[in-house]
Design a protein around this nucleic acid. Structure first.
Lengths: 336, 336
DNA sequence: CTGAAAGCGCTAACAG
DNA sequence: CTGTTAGCGCTTTCAG
């Protein structure tokens, strides 16, 4: 490894290497002329500061760890993009790890990040039960969770108001004239999903319409599940005029099932999702849905983490952002 | 920072800290009994090795840098996912940076990675002209490029055989009976695109059919461009039976334009893309396209980089993988 | 087999 | 204003 070090520069400049360090760190206690000369020599010699050595003494790396369940998922990858860009603007680089929806792996990569001495970690947990298994790790480094509502757990997290989002969605459909609205894809094992279906039920009650929930017993909200659920639904007698999906991914499956069954969207039935994944905006899909403000979530998570790094003993905080419905062409007004 | 260090463990164990180091590194020159005892004490005390300190002395970080133009793009995020998982299996963590399609930023994040002393960097460049501006950086750390064909440039890269891919695509359409095939979205400023359109032209010549190319003068292959190009095309007289797009993203725009113009896919016209982005498989899109083997590209890039790290003076290498057409429902057989 | 000691490149007192 | 020095936590000769 033949790179230029402070010492090398110092030798050439004929000063002590502390002086070079000061020149570069913009310390005030150094003469203008020396500083300029030293900086010039640094450039001439192609000196690059060694961040590893600096971390060693500074006891911080300016690296943030990010653990996502899968980068193969548009929600995660968009969040990652926003987090990376914002974190970098704040002077931090990002070390990204996939947990691949695996609790073991999640723990493993977290440990890795800990031994790498990252200054903090942001994670989108496999589930909100993740918390227990991670206690010993989160105790070692400032951590903020994204996405899952950790409710009253002693952790920092940022999330969207899932209940309010679904409530708005239901009200939106109601406003369009829908009185029979199917909720497709409720999942028992996820706090997020419980909150979402809760929002739907609350709205139904408030609006005085009868709820109808189709449960998803699988652990994920995939196209396939949406397809299977919708296919069975369309096969039977059904009098709903709208279907509200627990996630955009499910809606994709519904579109396929509807197409195969000759049910037209939105002419025969209105369809609505939740998440506003990037592909939902694609012209052939153009799904009306509830937006999760990804950039705002990302910024909130980074801000929260940075605060926590500065002030590790602050009480736990949570930030809940408001989702909003984004109107596209998969829903229509009805008089039915 | 009150974490446990080797020294702490050594004190408790009543040995020198060199011994602890040896116990953990699996050195052969240490007694079995001491090793076991030391390891047990490490666990009891909750010792976590400090990777930063280790990097300092080992002169390598076991970190790879990855620079992508945007994680907001399904191709990039899938590649990133594969690279991260494979790199981790090889014992490396990944530091990910977005260049946001900005040449300045690309250089900037590269410098950042250099000062962080990453062992190597993988990058999907903003363009293949990126090379020039990066020469001084790539000289400092093993680097491999993905995606762009760097042709005869003295760099390491892995790419797909773009020309062959488009040739296959053309032949595939020909095999379906198409004799008039429009090539939509050729871009002059990209080597990749030149190769792709070249493959199309080669195939046309070989098959004895007349080529028809619609150029894209914008610097990116977006939905909007696909839409605009197709809209203008459908507005005029057109007798092609198939349109072959330079990228899946363009095809999405074509679908929209076709829908608006009342042109049915595939009944009235067959549509084919290139890249096989994840959304192309979604039921409402279901685009026939040419697959870039993302996982294989990722593995090839990591392998190449790791080899280079081991053997920095090896000659430049390139790996060209074969793309293959994936049949879906946007193309149909024709007798026209 | 184990201990002592040097040093990776840098920052931050502490002296001058 | 500048130089000297002591580490940060770890690996690795070199002695014993």
């Amino acid at each position: 490894m033949g790179f230029v070090t402070l010492k090398d520069v110092a030798k050439v400049a004929g000063v002590s290497y502390a002086t070079v360090s000061r020149a570069l760190s913009g310390s005030p206690e150094i003469g203008e002329n020396t500083r300029k000369r030293v900086i010039r020599i640094c450039e001439e010699m192609g000196y690059t500061p060694n961040a590893v050595a600096r971390s060693m003494v500074m006891k911080r790396t300016n690296i943030l760890g990010l653990i996502v369940t899968s980068l193969n998922n548009p929600f995660m990858s968009e969040m990652t993009a926003h987090i990376e860009i914002y974190a970098r603007q704040c002077g931090y680089n990002l070390m990204v790890c996939n947990s691949s929806y695996d609790r073991e792996l999640e723990k493993e990569v977290f440990s890795l990040l800990v031994s790498r001495k990252v200054d903090g970690v942001i994670m989108i947990p496999v589930g909100n039960e993740s918390y227990d298994a991670l206690k010993t790790l989160t105790a070692q480094v400032p951590t903020v969770f994204i996405g899952e509502n950790m409710q009253d757990l002693p952790e920092n997290y940022v999330s969207v108001d899932n209940a309010a989002g679904m409530q708005h969605a239901t009200e939106y459909l109601y406003g369009l004239g829908h009185r029979k609205i199917l909720y497709l894809g409720a999942r028992e094992n996820s706090m997020t999903h419980k909150l979402r279906v809760g929002g739907y039920l609350t709205a139904c009650e408030r609006l005085g319409i009868a709820p109808h929930v189709l449960n998803n017993t699988s652990p994920r909200s995939s196209f396939e599940v949406g397809y299977a659920l919708a296919d069975a639904y369309f096969a039977g007698t059904h009098d709903e005029t709208a279907v509200l999906c627990a996630a955009d991914t499910l809606a994709i499956g519904v579109i396929k099932a509807a197409y195969e069954r000759g049910v037209r969207i939105p002419e025969d039935i209105s369809l609505m999702g939740f998440d506003n994944l990037s592909f939902s905006a694609l012209p052939p899909i153009d799904l009306t849905t509830v937006n999760q403000p990804k950039q705002a979530l990302a910024a909130a998570a980074v801000d929260m983490l940075l605060n926590r790094i500065k002030n590790p003993d602050a009480p736990y905080t949570k930030t809940i952002l408001s989702p909003s419905v984004v109107e596209r062409s998969s829903c229509r007004r009805t008089d039915a």
